[in-house]
Design a protein around this nucleic acid. Structure first.
Length: 692
RNA sequence: GCCGAUGUAGCUCAGCUGGUAGAGCAACGGUUUCGUAAACCGUAGGUCACGGGUUCGAAUCCCGUCAUCGGCUCCA
């Protein structure tokens, strides 16, 4: 399971090559970090030329990055693990020594670091890592048996203290996490104090697999992906769509009460919109490539035809007047000159005059048409469209704050390797809204949005979350971030102040802002330990300016509003993916795709009629209820309903019918016994209404 | 996009070192009339992801493509 500190750890693991800084390790981390050294020892026994980069403990184990011509595959694990077991059995001490910078560099040059002894090739990554250790820091080495490594430690006392370990996977990773650096093989493993804990860990992984949203989504018939539709483009089955409808109902009610207005915009817009917004070029690689439309093609062809016809009339006219030295079959410029001159005359026939005018009319019109195809893009974000809605009507300070909400589809061209079930998709429905406000209104609007998050989290029982405040990187202005240094500074200062005053727990993460302004992401952890950005809240100073959005202030001057982008429920795709894992598919009644299933015992006509009457009553109240009139026995019907995680089952036998009752069974709770029909129905309706 | 792994019926999975593709559940047709997690019998269902190659013969071996998964990079 992941905790809040894991963000810091991951950042440290990614950004801190030497591990020469950072918080002290826990006992388990020391075991895992030591196991990484043992892994390197094992690999070197098999491939002495291996070059190691760094090998820290991570959330669920450890890894070591290695460069090696041989491609390590899971088939090699057994062999490597055998070498590792020998090293653990030898029970070598982890011996720490401190060396001078020059000594360390010398050893690296001799290939002795992350090695079993001197080698012909230098330990090149270690050489580089030594360079990055700050001058005032001590340089330490750790030895276990023959293996010596540059390492800040700490370690367990002896290799034998690594109770139980297992190699788990191999992946590739860029050296220092930078795409421009060489790719290394990253060997992952995990280690625990003892075999029992190791086994428990793998058993836990098996359990986690059962609540994986991709597995449950298929089993519960919530959504599907189809090759003909395309990767990352989920299709929602009726049961999944039911959840979407409930979430939208929730959002619409909440937002209506909070003074939002709903708008609707298109999925497609011309290139010019996104040039204005800055999505092109700042966001271009996340957008689907454009489609090109020859919008004026037909009109251009028609005009050109008419020009040709008119010109032939004019040419005829010219040639009829031609003197010996004049040639009517001349180039365009000469023709224009000649015809203009000819039109000076007084005796021009009417049809020639008409052709002349027709030609000029057509040529003038052509100037205003697009000869080049026009580009249209699928929208990746709603904001540019909403800005246009702001701009569609003159705005006064009295209109602010103006809050436009839309649950629209956006399409983003995520890289193929990024796609991940529902959590990372290419078509997404965002719980989006844009709040246009004055700087004075910013704080209360911003806090109101945060309050909305907290209410939602309470409703869904989300207890663990953290806000990440992402700021810009001054060095990437004009590349990743709009080039407005002063506005960035002011806005970040403003947001930081609001966050601090509101007392919300947050961490500040540099360089991860949106291109148009700083943002706050809300990270949550699904029940199986995955971490996600579920909601987002961003400040946009850039786009309102780029769109020249203004409102008339009290003093009759035009001012530019601030814009807050916010999506407390994130996207349906990710949010539902999260909820599936959060609830393990056992949705509360209000969200349950099938809220009630009626299970008659037997199929006697009166019993079926009674069951159907109960069904009709529920459906008349918009309850998603079904009747199982199959020929299964009652145990079979219950089994099937339980497997589909139907929330409430109403078992109806002869006894119930005669008492005008139903027997209530709730998924996960079992048989709750018979209840009067009215009472049971009322209870269901009340629970749905309260979202309890 | 990069590295690695995987791809057999709607689902879960068998199918040895190449010799004509199998089970359970689901579906469909019957029989059964059952009080809280699976009644019984039968029927149908697959171009073994796709495309090439090797071979007398390929689900199986080789190459390529696509998709998914584990990571990396990216990320509202």
């Amino acid at each position: 399971m992941r905790d809040e500190s894991s963000i810091a750890e991951d950042v440290a693991a990614a950004d801190e090559p030497s591990a020469h800084e950072g918080p002290p390790m826990t006992e388990l981390e020391r075991i895992r970090h030591s196991c990484a050294h043992v892994l390197a020892t094992g690999i070197l026994r098999l491939w002495p030329e291996a070059q190691f980069a760094y090998g820290p403990p991570v959330e669920n184990g450890f890894y070591y990055d290695v460069e090696l011509p041989h491609r390590i595959s899971p088939e090699d694990f057994e062999q490597i693990e055998a070498e590792m077991r020998k090293e653990i059995k030898a029970n070598h001490r982890f011996e720490r020594s401190v060396v001078s910078r020059e000594q360390a560099l010398e050893m690296a040059r001799r290939g002795e670091l992350a090695a079993l002894g001197p080698r012909s090739e230098p330990s090149k990554f270690k050489l580089d890592l030594i360079e990055s250790i700050p001058a005032n820091e001590e340089i330490s080495l750790y030895r276990n048996g023959d293996f010596l490594d540059l390492c800040a430690g700490p370690h367990v006392m002896r290799t034998g203290n690594i109770g139980a370990f297992k190699l788990t996977s191999v992946a590739s990773a860029y050296y220092k996490g930078d795409e421009r650096n060489p790719q290394l093989q990253r060997i992952y493993g995990t280690a625990f104090k003892n075999k029992t804990q190791l086994d428990e860990y793998f058993a836990m992984l098996e359990e986690a697999k059962k609540r994986d949203h991709r597995k449950l989504g298929k089993e519960l018939e919530l959504f599907t992906f189809d090759e003909d539709v395309g990767p990352g483009l989920p299709l929602w089955l009726p049961r999944g769509a039911a959840i979407i409808e409930e979430l939208e109902k929730l959002a619409k009610e909440t937002e209506f009460a909070a003074g939002y207005q709903r708008v609707r915009t298109t999925n497609l817009a011309r290139e010019s919109l996104y040039l204005k917004s800055g999505h092109l070029p700042y966001y271009a690689e996340s957008m689907f490539p454009p489609m090109e439309l020859n919008e004026d093609k037909d009109e251009i062809a028609m005009l050109e035809g008419r020009i040709v016809a008119a010109r032939s009339v004019l040419e005829q006219h010219l040639s009829s007047r031609a003197t010996d030295e004049e040639d009517a079959s001349c180039n365009d410029v000469q023709f224009e000159r000649a015809i203009n001159a000819a039109m000076e005359a007084n005796d021009i026939p009417a049809h020639v005059l008409e052709a002349f005018e027709e030609k000029n009319r057509c040529q003038t019109r052509l100037v205003f048409l697009n000869q080049q195809p026009r580009r249209y893009y699928l929208k990746a974000m709603n904001c540019p469209h909403h800005h246009k809605l702001f701009d569609a009507v003159p705005r006064s300070y009295r209109d602010l704050p103006l809050r436009f909400a839309e649950y629209g589809y956006c399409h983003r061209y995520e890289q193929s390797g990024e796609l991940f079930g529902l959590m990372r998709v290419r078509s997404l429905q965002m719980n989006d809204a844009h709040i246009y406000c004055t700087p004075e209104q910013f704080e209360s609007e911003f806090n109101a949005v945060n309050q909305m998050y907290l209410r939602y989290f309470k409703l869904f029982g989300i207890e663990k979350y953290i806000m990440r405040f992402s700021t810009h990187d001054p060095e990437r202005l004009g590349q990743k971030f709009v080039d407005e240094p002063e506005l960035w500074r002011q806005t970040e200062e403003m947001v930081r102040g609001v966050l601090q005053r509101s007392g919300i727990n947050y961490v500040e993460v540099p360089n991860e802002a949106a291109f148009y302004g700083p943002k706050i992401d809300v990270q949550v952890w699904s029940a199986i330990g995955r971490e996600f950005t579920i909601a987002t809240n961003q400040v946009d100073f850039a786009q309102p300016r780029r769109f020249d959005l203004t409102y008339k202030d009290r003093d009759n001057t035009d001012k530019t509003p601030l814009c807050i982008h916010r999506a407390p429920l994130g996207t349906h795709e990710r949010f539902i993916g999260f909820l599936i894992e959060h609830y393990a598919g056992n949705f509360p009644l209000w969200l349950s795709p099938e809220q009630v299933r009626i299970l008659p015992i037997g199929d006697d006509a009166p019993l079926i009629d009674y069951s159907r009457a109960v069904l009709d009553e529920l459906r008349a109240n918009y309850v998603r209820a079904e009747l199982d009139d199959s020929s299964d026995k009652i145990n079979g019907k219950i089994q099937r309903a339980e497997q589909m995680k139907v929330h409430t089952m109403l078992v109806i036998g002869k006894r119930d019918m005669e008492a005008n009752a139903v027997s209530v069974r709730v998924h996960g709770q079992g048989n709750l016994g018979a209840k009067p029909r009215d009472q049971a129905v009322a209870g269901i309706l009340a629970a749905i209404k309260d979202r309890s």
